[in-house]
Nucleic acid binder design. Sequence first.
DNA 1: CAGTATCCATTTCGATACTG
DNA 2: CAGTATCGAAATGGATACTG
Lengths: 227, 227
Amino acid sequence: MGSYGQFCPVARAMELLDERWTLLVVRELLAGSRHFNDLRRGVPRMSPSLLTKRLRTLHDAGVVERHEGPNSVTYELTAAGRELHHVVEALGIWGTRWMPEIGDHHLDPRLLMWDLHRNVDLEAMPDGRTVLEFHLPDAKPRARDWWVVADDEGADLCDDDPGYEITARIEASLETLSRVWIGEIAWDRAVRAGDLRISAPDHVRRQLPTWLTLSHFASVDRPMAGV
Amino acid sequence: MGSYGQFCPVARAMELLDERWTLLVVRELLAGSRHFNDLRRGVPRMSPSLLTKRLRTLHDAGVVERHEGPNSVTYELTAAGRELHHVVEALGIWGTRWMPEIGDHHLDPRLLMWDLHRNVDLEAMPDGRTVLEFHLPDAKPRARDWWVVADDEGADLCDDDPGYEITARIEASLETLSRVWIGEIAWDRAVRAGDLRISAPDHVRRQLPTWLTLSHFASVDRPMAGV
DNA sequence: CAGTATCCATTTCGATACTG
DNA sequence: CAGTATCGAAATGGATACTG
């Protein structure tokens, strides 16, 4: 394993990048995660020891820098790491266009809510606190109810009721919400079909789609759409 | 192994593409190889059974088409496969810019000569037959001498003396010629340093660099150059 | 030309539990 | 918070030889 025995730069890049999980960790770092446990939330099926190992490999390759603070450790991409965004972008576009639709084994409520919560548009939200309650009836008990609590400082994700007043409640199956998030079905269409149910005052209901920024790849053109 | 359990399109693309050798096979197909044994020459360290397996996986994923002719089998990229050129391109550029210089274990005379021979510029060459003899003194006996025989039909690679009149003879270590090929050192500089030695009439000697097109990534800007 | 067949050493990863 | 420790099951793929 390891080297391909080729001088070709594609092969030498893949020596590092074809290791399982590696580019997903890079994707998380590109998305802005800095702490070990934040990274974990972006790759929830990855074991912590494997994450450690990958971070070390990426560090040794000059892609990641590790900073030890007084009471926290942060990881950051180097210039080389930041340039991997071209690779991740190309992969994401290709995956969106050509990979078959998502199946049950691709669905993960923890990842979905983690992605959703870190992409809320704080600017678009009203001043003060906004609390979005999500209910995924078909998820496992522990992953069924979520709260995104946003103020001008940022957005937090809770899996316990924080007790605040709810601005809006969103109910959908894990599959529906996932497919809306990645752009496979449109928000409005899911609402009209009754697959996405919103409990909120009318003005909130209208605003809601602008608060939730969908996946970066949601707007990618799909050649197979409707086939 | 296999699924990452993520709906993220980067993850779904990597489910297919992070398997060892896969993108190098795609690179070969993008470079124009159509036949099994041509593909093998582009990935000389890959076992034939593994190549078979990867081709099957790529076929099942809709990336490759397999055509059985009367006495030959050809593989061709589908539209989905052709679009992987964005991914391969991004990887090659990144690898060129950020992967450390090549080491001995990256050198492979078979691959080098295969790459060189399929990138000669037939248009730039004189009419009739052109025969380039390569001598790599430090390669293993069987991989030390090569002949590229080009006419207006195409270029062939031989590892036995075809017996034709030699237009030019090029002598360099495997490392030097590899580094020139991938653009790590310039042709002229290698010649001036005496690392690349050419036996040919003066007008051929001047023309030679235009006949040999270097690696597609040779011209990529290297941020670490000279550090 | 275009693959199969075989075989095992090695790796790799996932799951889980635990720690300063 | 930021990791280690441990373990075994699974698979991966490299080497080599062979075939219609």
